[in-house]
């Protein structure tokens, strides 16, 4: 898959997973690995980018005697996710027309 396209897709995937429930690093990777190829080194920049753009917030909580960072989607993140869903509908239409794939 094209790198640029995958970049946007990964953002959408992360937000989609977080829209169901808050999560932490390792769990996010585990959940996403079934859907799309992603590594630990790929996830960090995505989380950072989404946090800076206000799509998610982080909170550190104690877990079994250590601190674990949890990521939660924000209202802005939900808006962004809705935009991604809209993009998908339009992209599907465009691809259908160009490649004659139909619905």
């Amino acid at each position: 898959m094209d790198a640029q396209m995958k970049k946007g897709l990964l953002d959408a995937c992360v937000l989609a997973v977080l829209s169901r429930e808050e999560s932490y690093g390792y769990k996010l990777i585990a959940d996403l690995k079934d859907i799309i190829e992603i590594s630990e080194s790929t996830l960090y920049p995505i989380l950072k980018r989404l946090e800076v753009s206000g799509c998610l917030t982080t909170v550190s909580r104690e877990y079994q005697g250590r601190t674990r960072k949890y990521y939660t989607i924000t209202k802005g993140g939900r808006h962004r996710l809705a935009d991604y869903k809209l993009d998908w509908v339009q992209m599907k239409e465009i691809y259908g027309k160009i490649f004659g794939m139909g619905d």
Partner: peptide, 21 residues
Amino acid sequence: TETPFKGDNGEKGRQNKKTVQ
């Protein structure tokens, strides 16, 4: 398209970078 993020949880302080990104 900047609009959804402006009033998000009072994070207007980050607006410049996030709307640019």
